[in-house]
Nucleic acid binder design. Structure first.
Length: 594
RNA sequence: GUCCCCGUCGUCUAGCCUGGUCCAGGACAUCAGGUUUUCAUCCUGAAAACACGGGUUCGAAUCCCGUCGGGGACACCA
């Protein structure tokens, strides 16, 4: 049987490193077994899904090198002028049934069909309880400290006539699935045998009042329709598994194999998710309420004078802010805006609550100048190991993973994301890559836009010299631009670092300035302004004047760069060119009086 | 709170299934030296873990039980 895996993100934001790793594992599993890898967009949440997020996710997948055999069309290259307008939905099939967007599949009636079957067989029923009613029941249960479980008796007692009458009135309703009264056993490829007891299951919603299927129904229907044989997903879905296998059984679908992979956390231990931020903010709020009382706290949060940021946020959800805050504190929503608001208000008292911490997503690493293959290599190490102390997967990590990946070697414990290690791996990969590729990548990195105004292209000889100087000392593709900015600015615009000037030039009766004066003449007289010639000149001068190399190189470095850090001084001068070097030295010398 | 999952150096992990070869190996970080005109590299070395308590066994990181700790889920979100 051919293996079919899928990655099914919900387009409510950027692709997260945790999601990327799930995608990587699902991809690797399919590739390893010469199977099929599907990408499906789970956009049944009308309110939160956006086409921009979908486009971003597709782009991130593409950038990582995780190619999909079936799914939405690949977006155009990011620097293609068509990219910003490119609409993933427009480009999709006209035939909704063949679509890999759940919203389109829904429009084509794919889910309604299955829901009708469940209704007809009595495995599903209509429930007219409103969200408010359910919330009240939940709260009551919580007050009495007993666990809440949806009680189906009321809905089940409704006669066909009553249901018809309610519907005629236009009363909204959800459709719920009747969970079977039996223990469900699932053999998980990572965790082993899992047992789910019926007492802890409840009849869950499969169709929302807005007519859209819930995630549970859609996932089961689509996985079956697409022939998915192996579901690889995060452990946060573990408790959804009984729902899914019960649904599969009721619909007569074959049950796929499941592999629940461990979660990735931020290095400080906080989960990299909205929920975590919400949790932190909630804890902070609780603390504040304890101290100042609920009303005072609420008043501060809702203070209209300081609410502008909140209201200006385009993501602000509808509904009054006070209601949202209450819901938030009751753990009924995880609004990131509310969390942020709480953090802002409490920041002075509770600086450790850092809900502003940016989401750690794939896009951040691309923009920061990380290599996709390095990210894949590192991500694979979080929860999987090829064994034999192998950590660096060579020049083609994806190929390595494709050849070696095995669910049996996936760990069960959660992992923390270690930026330091990723950083180190990135540095090594940059050091090891060939010069032409380095030029190409640095030149075209989206965030290095300023380079493209300065040089004609990656093969511009001046740019090539610059890259040659920076490759071995760069750990990201951004570093050359950050560290080498002095190369591009006007000679008059060099900003001199006070500490560097004090330490290198002014110290020791201004001997650094002496060096500059001495060398200005010699450098001006130089015809062949190449690194080699400059090097021998400096060396000879150091020897002749009895100074160490540092005593000569550092003053020059400060004079031409403004700082005490640069590539080797001979190369630095050669790249800058004689005219610039002389001008900068002269300008620097005018500081001596000051 | 209820249910579920997990628990080897600070972090990621190898080893665990098939007990002895493990006074536990590797990597990142840390610390100490060294190379280098600065930076970034590079080299050498050090410190650093089987959560705890019971069992089983001649012998347990490895098997069993309990405790503690961490995490997840408990929505008409996915």
């Amino acid at each position: 049987m051919a293996m079919i895996t899928r990655f099914a993100p919900s387009p409510t934001g950027s692709l997260h490193v945790g999601g990327a790793r799930t995608a990587l594992f699902a991809w690797a599993l399919a590739r390893r077994h010469e199977g099929t890898f599907i990408l499906r967009i789970e956009d049944t949440d009308q309110a939160r899904s956006t086409p921009e997020a979908t486009r971003g996710i597709l782009r991130d997948m593409q950038w990582l090198g995780l190619d999909w055999d079936a799914g939405p069309p690949a977006p155009p290259a990011a620097d293609d002028p068509a990219y910003p307008q490119w609409d993933p939905y427009q480009a999709e099939h006209a035939d909704g049934r063949a679509s890999y967007f759940q919203s389109q599949r829904h429009a084509a009636g794919v889910y309604a069909e299955q829901i009708d079957r469940l209704l007809a067989s009595g495995r599903a029923y209509k429930c007219f309880k409103t969200t408010e009613q359910l919330d009240a029941e939940r709260q009551a249960a919580r007050k009495q400290k007993r666990p809440y479980r949806y009680d189906p008796t009321e809905a089940l007692a409704l006669t066909a006539e009553q249901v018809a009458a309610y519907e005629a009135e236009g009363r909204p309703h959800a459709i719920r699935f009747r969970m079977p009264d039996e223990t469900l056993v699932v053999e998980d490829d990572v965790l082993g045998e899992l047992r789910f007891e019926p007492e802890q299951q409840e009849d869950f919603v499969i169709r929302k009042a807005d007519g859209f299927p819930t995630y549970h129904l859609a996932v089961v229907v689509d996985d079956a329709a697409m022939g998915v044989t192996h579901v690889v997903r995060g452990q946060e879905h573990l408790n959804n598994t009984p729902k899914h296998v019960a649904l599969q059984a009721a619909l007569g679908f074959e049950r796929p194999r499941y592999a629940h992979i461990p979660l990735i956390f931020n290095a400080d231990g906080s989960k990299m998710s909205k929920r975590d931020k919400a949790k932190a903010a909630r804890a902070a709020a609780k603390e504040a309420i304890k101290q100042e009382g609920h009303e005072a706290f609420e008043a501060r949060i809702l203070n209209p004078r300081t609410m502008s940021m909140y209201e200006a946020d385009p993501d602000a959800e509808s509904g009054s802010i006070a209601d949202q805050l209450d819901d938030f504190l009751d753990r009924k929503n995880d609004s990131i805006l509310v969390a942020r608001r709480i953090a802002d208000v409490l920041s002075r008292e509770l600086p450790e609550i850092d809900v502003q911490l940016p989401e750690i997503n794939v896009d951040d690493f691309r923009q920061a100048g990380y290599l996709p293959e390095v990210l894949c290599n590192y991500l694979a190490l979080l929860g999987w190991s090829p064994g034999e102390d192998v950590e660096r997967f060579g020049p083609d990590p994806l190929g390595f993973i494709r050849d070696r990946f095995d669910l049996a070697r996936v760990g069960k414990a959660n992992a923390r994301f270690d930026r330091e290690k990723l950083f180190r791996f990135n540095a090594e990969a940059i050091a090891a890559m060939d010069a032409a590729r380095f030029r190409e990548l640095v030149y075209h990195l989206e965030t290095n836009a300023e380079l493209r105004g300065l040089f004609d292209g990656p093969e511009d000889p001046r740019f090539a010299d610059f890259c040659e100087a920076y490759q071995e000392r760069s750990r990201t593709l951004r570093e050359p631009v950050e560290a080498g900015r002095f190369f591009f600015v006007e000679d008059e615009a060099i900003v001199y670092d006070e500490k560097a000037v004090a330490k290198v030039l002014a110290k020791g009766d201004g001997d650094g300035f002496n060096v500059l004066r001495e060398l200005r003449e010699k450098l001006t007289a130089l015809d062949d302004f190449t690194a080699e010639v400059i090097h021998s000149l400096i060396q000879a001068h150091a020897e002749a004047t009895g100074r160490g190399m540092g005593k000569v190189a550092q003053p020059l470095r400060v004079a031409v760069t403004g700082t005490s850090v640069s590539p080797p001084i001979d190369k630095t001068l050669a790249i800058l060119g004689k005219a610039s070097v002389v001008r900068r030295i002269e300008r620097c010398l005018t500081m001596e009086e000051a």
